[in-house]
Design a protein around this nucleic acid. Sequence first.
DNA 1: AAGGCGTGGTC
DNA 2: TGACCAAGCCT
Length: 309
Amino acid sequence: MPEHLHPPTIGTAPDPAVVVARTLDWYAGQARDLPWRRPDCSPWGVMVSEFMLQQTPVTRVLGPWQAWLDRWPTPAALAASPAGEAVRMWGRLGYPRRALRLHRAAQAIVDDHGGQVPADLEELRALPGVGDYTAAAVASFAHGRRAVVLDTNVRRVLSRVAAGEGQPPAHVRASERARAEAHLPRAAGRAARWAAASMELGALVCTARNPRCEACPLVDLCTWNLAGRPEETYRPRTQSYEGTDRQCRGAVLAVLRDAAGPVATTELRTAWPEHRAGGADQFERALTSLAADGLVTAIGAEHWALPGD
DNA sequence: AAGGCGTGGTC
DNA sequence: TGACCAAGCCT
């Protein structure tokens, strides 16, 4: 019996073609004017934005992104600067290893790709700091390629709309990828717009907390909404930040970032007052791990600095 | 394959 | 207020 003779049933996933069409219509009217979405933005500009946006909100990325591209408008420009300058320019965006990886990726682009950001998914995936999501995002947003762009927003939207689950699983599963593939339009241009639109819907409407279902173009066919938006019982346990090694690393790196030259270990230690839980051992541990990551370099026996290249 | 890795905003 | 969250990646 033809599919269209069956009326929609509660708990049945809606037609992907309808989901895509409605989301694209919504996006046409609601998309934010972000600088890396403008037609004149280079593939490099898109790639820089994707690195900065990893686990970091859009509002905090806007300023640093512009400053970064003003200073390093091409991969070659960044590759010609010392790695420490990339770490310094990264500022307080967080996860400073991303700055190091972006710098190494720029060098690889110069060395292996003629200075041009690759469009091929596998070539992108091979770059430092580029995982499945970022590779697909750059291929799609920078080059208009058809790719499965599966970030936390898209995962949440599809989990709710198609699976009736309020939150996606902790890690990407094959079933999610298959679901995303089933929603991906055939035409590359439409696929790229769907990627941006589904992410935007997750970011602005289908949010993790307090979703604005009344403003959602999919509200009447969303499996999760039709089921009464059941709450998830599972909550990943989040570690508090105060007093952690992460905070200690951040405090140490902040001193080096703001210093013109090498800083003595004794002075660096004042960035982590003894009254904190971890004490002196924690400081040594943080410094060692920062050096192991390549974020800091020893100068002689008693000084530290950002890496030279 | 869980857990480590920054920082700041929100409710 | 503290817990959660934000366009993940790497080991």
